[in-house]
């Protein structure tokens, strides 16, 4: 972990990963969209609307995944004063917020034809909305204080406290009655979705994952450069 505390080492690793991640993003989105829109059958109950699943579920998974990344990074930042970890949380937050917003929007667009409503205040939808506000709160705390260190501490603490929301999202469909369907992929007894639909779902999920890697690296480099610039500025002012 601390090997990556050095920005030069992070940049070297990032530069090695970047071309592969970019190629993988293009290929997986190409294959994923083909299977999502053409190469998979309509659902026997939902018809063509099932195709919303291939953009909704990966966005929802990634919204949670990125939150855990942000929380782990925040923990490392608070516990070990790890400077890159702090920047990793800051770099990840806007990406996670985007995924979460997309999960909410595509979910509403799936809910309207299937449930007859864009929105219900049930456990699943509400806890995902809470996750979206946690991301916004984290980003707002970074901007709210002049002192970068205090801002980073406050944001990191919020990210850690908000981690309690992740199991609530996951188990909300089991704990409370809801219109939202229960887990059908991440189940102990295996997926209950037909294989023809798992292909586009997993391809799109993989595409979202490598997309995250690419954008996260860009945002990390941006944060590292900003840190360098502010260090240079403060050194210059000391003269």
């Amino acid at each position: 972990m601390h090997r990556f505390a050095n920005p030069a080492q992070f940049n070297r690793l990032a530069d090695a990963v970047m071309p592969w991640a970019m190629v993988a993003t293009v290929l997986l989105f190409g294959a994923g969209l083909y299977y999502a829109l053409a190469g998979s059958p309509p659902d026997y109950q939902q018809g063509e609307s099932v195709r919303v699943m291939y953009v909704h579920v990966p966005a929802a998974w990634m919204g949670m995944f990125v939150y855990v990344v942000m929380a782990v990074a925040s923990f490392a930042a608070l516990a070990w004063r790890h400077p890159l970890a702090l920047l990793a949380g800051k770099a990840a937050a806007p990406i996670g917020a985007t995924f979460t917003a997309l999960a909410l929007i595509t979910g509403a667009l799936w809910g309207k034809p299937m449930w007859g409503t864009y929105w219900v205040w049930d456990g699943r939808l509400t806890s995902v909305l809470v996750q979206f506000f946690l991301y916004l709160g984290y980003m707002a705390l970074w901007k709210s204080m002049e002192d970068e260190e205090k801002a980073g501490n406050a944001a990191s603490i919020l990210a850690l406290v908000g981690l309690v929301n992740i199991p609530i999202i996951k188990f909300s469909v089991d704990w409370w009655s809801t219109l939202h369907q229960p887990a059908s992929v991440m189940r102990l007894d295996g997926p209950t979705i037909d294989g023809a639909m798992l292909v586009p779902l997993f391809l799109m999920a993989a595409a979202y994952q490598v997309y995250f890697t690419v954008v996260f690296i860009w945002r990390m480099k941006f944060e590292i450069n900003n840190r360098k610039l502010s260090v240079m500025r403060s050194v210059d002012m000391g003269h």
Partner: peptide, 25 residues
Amino acid sequence: GKHAVFIWTAYGFSAAALVVLALRS
């Protein structure tokens, strides 16, 4: 099918948001 507008709007929002985020980053 009859829900085409919902499906394409969902894909449209997703593509637009991901492309804009990537380009800005």
